[in-house]
């Protein structure tokens, strides 16, 4: 059985949403930063026990100017990955409001949080502590990721895939 679902990547600008997709879909990483204009759509098939799940991934621009458009882009998504930058705490603090916007557009959708750029952190970090400080809801699946070294990238997507399939 082939299931196809739309998911969104959300988060402030330059937190690494596009890098997360590049690492996941193409297993690539680039230090060069190119901002996403509007939306960039990718496709990735994940093999599951019951068949396969094709994710149509909408990488939404983190720029504030696109907020109104971004709201319409979120409609119809079965899931979302919220990305924050560990080196910029404000990008994590803004996640609760973004989660709230997403949930209002898609009440039944699943979502996970990726706290990105662990490679820039001098010391190991506690994901739950950061989430708690930022006011993220309890019980969320939170992953510490690094697109540069590929840490936990696959896990973020497969975890979200699992949550979507459970619904």
């Amino acid at each position: 059985m082939i299931i196809q679902k739309k998911i969104c990547l959300l988060g402030d600008f330059a937190v690494g949403k596009t890098s997360l997709i590049r690492r996941f879909v193409h297993n690539e990483f680039s230090e060069n930063y190119l901002t996403t204009i509007g939306v960039h759509i990718s496709k990735k098939e994940i093999s599951l026990e019951s068949g396969s799940l094709v994710l149509i991934i909408w990488d939404l621009a983190g720029n504030d100017g696109f907020q109104r458009t971004a709201a319409s882009y979120m409609v119809g998504a079965a899931g979302a990955i919220f990305v924050g930058d560990l080196s910029r705490s404000e990008t994590i603090n803004s996640l609760p409001s973004q989660i709230s916007s997403f949930k209002s557009a898609n009440p039944d959708a699943s979502f996970v949080v990726a706290l990105n750029k662990t490679d820039l952190m001098p010391h190991p970090v506690d994901a739950n502590e950061i989430a708690s400080k930022a006011g993220l809801p309890d019980g969320l699946s939170i992953f510490l990721t690094s697109c540069k070294i590929g840490e936990n990238v696959e896990d973020v997507f497969s975890s979200l895939a699992g949550l979507i399939m459970e619904r």
Binding site: Q4, K6, G38, V39, I41, S42, K43, V54, I56, W58, T69, S72, Y73, V75
Partner: peptide
């Protein structure tokens, strides 16, 4: 990929 085309078409339409 036509799946991506349909996604982008929808995005453009929504935009």
């Amino acid at each position: 990929d036509r799946d991506l085309v349909s996604g982008m078409l929808t995005a453009i339409k929504d935009f």
